[in-house]
C-alpha cells in the first residue's frame, strides 16, 4: 500500500524520459514526426513482446497497431506519470490479455509452435524432403520447447518473465507495468522459473 502511495510522488522525474518528451512534443505541437519517432523506437520492441505473448506474428503486428492507436488517442490528455515504456507495455499487456480472453483457447494453442508467417518453423520441420543439419533441427526443437513452455505459463507469470528476460525491465518497472508490488513480481518470477526449469530440464541438459 505504502509502495503504491509513494509511486505517485516525484512525477517530475519522468519529464526527462526521452520518449515522454516526444509524446509531449506530439501533444503540444501536434507534430506527427514526433509520434513517428516514438513508433520507430518502440514498435518492434512492443511487437516482439506481444508476439511472445500470443505466439502469432500477424496478430502481434495488428495488436501492436492497436497499442499505438491507443497511445495516439491518449495524447491529448497525456502527462508523464511513469516512464513511457512502462505505460506502453501496460497497454500492450492489457490488449494481449483481452485478445486471449476474447479468443480463449484459439489464439494460443499449447501445441502450436510459434508462427512466423512465411518463416514458420513448423513448415520447415514438417518438410521431410529437405535434409537439415542436426544442430539446426536441435535449435528448432529448442525454439518450440521454449515457446511452448512460455505459453503454458499463467498470463501473469508469462508477462513477468517476458519483461525481465527479453525487455530487460527491473523488478520495479515490471511492478509498475503490471500494477503490482515488487515482492509480488519476485514471487511470480520465482514460480515461473521453477516451471520453466522443470519443463526445459531434458532439452537443456541434453
Amino acid at each position: 500500500m505504502v509502495e503504491f502511495l509513494f509511486r505517485e510522488n516525484n512525477i517530475e522525474q519522468y519529464l526527462d524520459d526521452p520518449d515522454a518528451k516526444l509524446m509531449l512534443k506530439f501533444k503540444e505541437e501536434e507534430d506527427p514526426s514526433a509520434f513517428e519517432e516514438l513508433m520507430r523506437k518502440n514498435f518492434s520492441r512492443i511487437m516482439n513482446f506481444i508476439y511472445r505473448f500470443v505466439a502469432d506474428r500477424e496478430l502481434a503486428e495488428d495488436l501492436t497497431q492497436e497499442v499505438f492507436i491507443k497511445i495516439y488517442n491518449s495524447a491529448s490528455n497525456y502527462y508523464p506519470r511513469s516512464k513511457f515504456k512502462t505505460w506502453a507495455f501496460t497497454i500492450a499487456r492489457n490488449i494481449s490479455l483481452n485478445e486471449l480472453r476474447k479468443n480463449k483457447g484459439q489464439v494460443v494453442s499449447l501445441d502450436k509452435p510459434f508462427k512466423h508467417g512465411e518463416d514458420d518453423m513448423s513448415l520447415q520441420v514438417e518438410d521431410k524432403t529437405v535434409s537439415k543439419p542436426d544442430d539446426e533441427i536441435i535449435k528448432e526443437e529448442l525454439v518450440d520447447a521454449v515457446g511452448k513452455a512460455i505459453n503454458e505459463l499463467p498470463a501473469n507469470q508469462r508477462t513477468a518473465i517476458l519483461l525481465i528476460r527479453y525487455e530487460g525491465f527491473s523488478y520495479e518497472e515490471i511492478a509498475r507495468t503490471m500494477n503490482t508490488t515488487v515482492s509480488a513480481v519476485k514471487s511470480l518470477l520465482s514460480r515461473a522459473r521453477e516451471t520453466l526449469k522443470e519443463k526445459l530440464a531434458d532439452i537443456v541438459s541434453g
Binding site: 506527427p32 513517428e36 513508433m39 520507430r40 514498435f43 518492434s44 511487437m47 516482439n48 508476439y51 511472445r52 506474428r57 502481434a60 503486428e61 501492436t64 497497431q65 499505438f68 492507436i69 495516439y72 510459434f114 512466423h116 535449435k139 529448442l142 525454439v143 521454449v146 515457446g147 512460455i150 518473465i161 528476460r165 527479453y166 522459473r193 520453466l196 526449469k197 526445459l200 530440464a201 532439452i203 537443456v204 541438459s205
Partner: peptide, 29 residues
C-alpha cells in the same frame, strides 16, 4: 544449471514489423 535454462530462453526468434507498418498505422488512424 539455472543459467543454462535462462540462456535457453534466448533462442526465441525476434520478428520485425512489415515495412509499411507506419503507413498502415496512419491509414488506420
Amino acid at each position: 544449471a539455472i543459467k543454462r535454462t535462462w540462456d535457453a530462453l534466448e533462442v526465441l526468434p525476434n520478428v520485425e514489423p512489415t515495412p509499411n507498418y507506419m503507413s498502415r498505422f496512419w491509414a488506420e488512424v
